[in-house]
């Protein structure tokens, strides 16, 4: 991180970082992710990339904020074929899958 410029923090100018990106995930018989398909938005149109999950490093579940809008997620830290390390999670409320950087 660069040192602070002492500019007053304007929260209206905050941009999200590491936002979950929707992906399509194929699961194995145990329900763990086996392959990932992602739509990439490019200037010359959309492109789909796919990758096979090589290793699942860790998995965990988060159930939170049940008092307002329930957040229920099943996370998987995985290594894709090629060596990329990513985090996948399934939104257990909507059954959608997302990808994030670790």
């Amino acid at each position: 991180m660069v040192p602070s410029s002492r500019t007053p923090l304007r929260t209206d100018r905050l941009r999200a970082v590491n936002e979950p990106q929707p992906v399509t995930v194929a699961c194995d018989a145990c329900g763990a992710p086996a392959a990932v398909k992602k739509q990439l938005r490019r200037s010359d149109g959309q492109e789909t990339t796919a990758a096979v999950v090589e290793t699942i490093l860790e998995s965990w579940r988060i159930d939170d904020e049940w008092w307002r809008q329930l957040i229920s997620r099943r996370y998987f830290a995985v290594i894709l074929v090629g060596g990329a390390r990513v985090v996948l999670f399934e939104d257990l409320v909507t059954s959608e899958w997302f990808i994030q950087t670790p």
Binding site: M1, S5, L14, V17, N18, E19, Q100, T101
Partner: peptide, 24 residues
């Protein structure tokens, strides 16, 4: 951009940090 801490304790990764315009 600066990376600023928003809720570094959050269990949801996307809530921990945010970007803000960097004006040196």
């Amino acid at each position: 951009y600066h990376i600023v801490e928003v809720q570094p304790w959050s269990r949801l990764p996307e809530r921990r940090y945010a970007l803000i315009d960097y004006e040196p």
